[in-house]
Design a protein around this nucleic acid. Structure first.
Lengths: 141, 141
DNA sequence: GGTACAATCTATAGCGACTAGAGGAGCAAG
DNA sequence: CTTGCTCCTCTAGTCGCTATAGATTGTACC
């Protein structure tokens, strides 16, 4: 199977934008695909799967370097999966951290918004809340 | 008031790094402070408050442009607070969205990590989970 | 076949929000 | 006086794209 789909179709199917696909090729995340005579890229099934993989991982917040690692592991499945597990674990910790801080943030934003009488005159606490530095984690006074 | 603290002290007190303070000045988020004879920046109380405000807002995930808006409102408190409220509301929506997707992500990562027998041989599902774009139980190349 | 228009190509520059480095000057303490 | 820290300016790099320019090429319709 030497033929495949054009970059546009690949973009549609994978959900990765055209320039982003080219960018991934440029940074070596995606191998250069075969080309038509007129130098157009042709993507096969494997490329599409790889693209979907990348996209999914990016959506999950994995950095490109982490994805590179995962892809290497994928390419050589006999390797230990410890690295993949490690990567996922690190990410999980990160995510839980992030969730916690976003929950705190949401509470604060809610407080801010609630403090502002919706259709009323300026009784707004948004700025005061932001200016309020009782969240001082700086040492000293 | 001609004196104040140096940029290093300001950084320590506000929690904003020295180069970042200079950067904020450069992009007009912070007014150029007074200087010593040898051209060192001197920050007063108001500057420190503003820096803390900026930092707090950045921590809350406000973009620099949004902060600029908030600072303008702060500088002229007679203006309607609707804009500030609006900004905060938009941010809140964003944050709730973000939390939702992170919760989904956490579930997926947990599933991934749990799928990998901890100290054991490769039974690892990290890569499969990531490659699985349709939530089918397909295998990958 | 002609013509219009979409998709593709390369190459380069820009974005946000910093961060790092070079190379030099000032200042406080031993 | 010298060591070592802080500070100065300036430029360039980071990450993960995104946008633009200008040149082909492929496709659809007549």
């Amino acid at each position: 199977m030497l033929d495949g789909v054009t970059i546009g179709a690949a973009a549609r199917q994978s959900g990765v934008k055209v320039p982003t696909i080219r960018y991934y090729e440029q940074i070596g995340l995606l191998a250069p695909p075969s080309r038509t005579e007129s130098q157009r890229r042709l993507y096969g099934k494997a490329d599409l799967r790889r693209l979907a993989f990348i996209r999914h991982a990016r959506e999950l917040g994995f950095e490109v370097d982490a994805i590179r690692t995962l892809l290497t592991l994928q390419d050589d499945p006999h390797q230990s999966c410890a690295a993949a597990d490690e990567t996922a674990r690190a990410r999980l910790a990160e995510v839980e951290q992030r969730i916690a801080s976003l929950l705190a943030l949401r509470a604060e934003l809610k407080r801010m918004v609630d403090g502002c009488a919706n259709g009323h005159v300026c009784d707004c606490r948004v700025i005061e809340t932001l200016a309020d530095q009782t969240h001082n984690h700086g040492r000293l006074a």
